[in-house]
């Protein structure tokens, strides 16, 4: 990711990001993306539903 990419995404999403925050945000997101890319590449079963309401129940 670079500053121009981030500005475009922010603009598309209607998000306001201060000019001085752009570079540090790019650096942070780059680091975060290292972790996230692996998750993105993980193949999950098609029938696996997301957790949308979280309420653990006792197990046997």
């Amino acid at each position: 990711m670079n500053a121009a990419d981030l500005r475009s995404i922010a603009q598309l999403s209607g998000l306001e990001v201060a000019k001085e925050d752009i570079d540090p945000l790019v650096a942070f997101l780059d680091e975060y993306l290292v972790e996230l890319r692996a998750l993105r590449e993980l193949r999950l079963p098609d029938d696996l539903e997301p957790v949308t309401g979280f309420a653990p129940e006792p197990w046997e």
């Binding site: 995404i9 925050d21 945000l25 996230l36 998750l39 993105r40 999950l44 539903e49 997301p50 957790v51």
Partner: peptide, 21 residues
């Protein structure tokens, strides 16, 4: 806090699917 605005919904839901796994 600002970085959180750039987490895509699809990534968020994938994280929630991983959670079930």
């Amino acid at each position: 806090l600002e970085a959180g605005r750039f987490v895509f919904a699809a990534d968020y839901l994938k994280a929630q699917r991983l959670r079930r796994l």
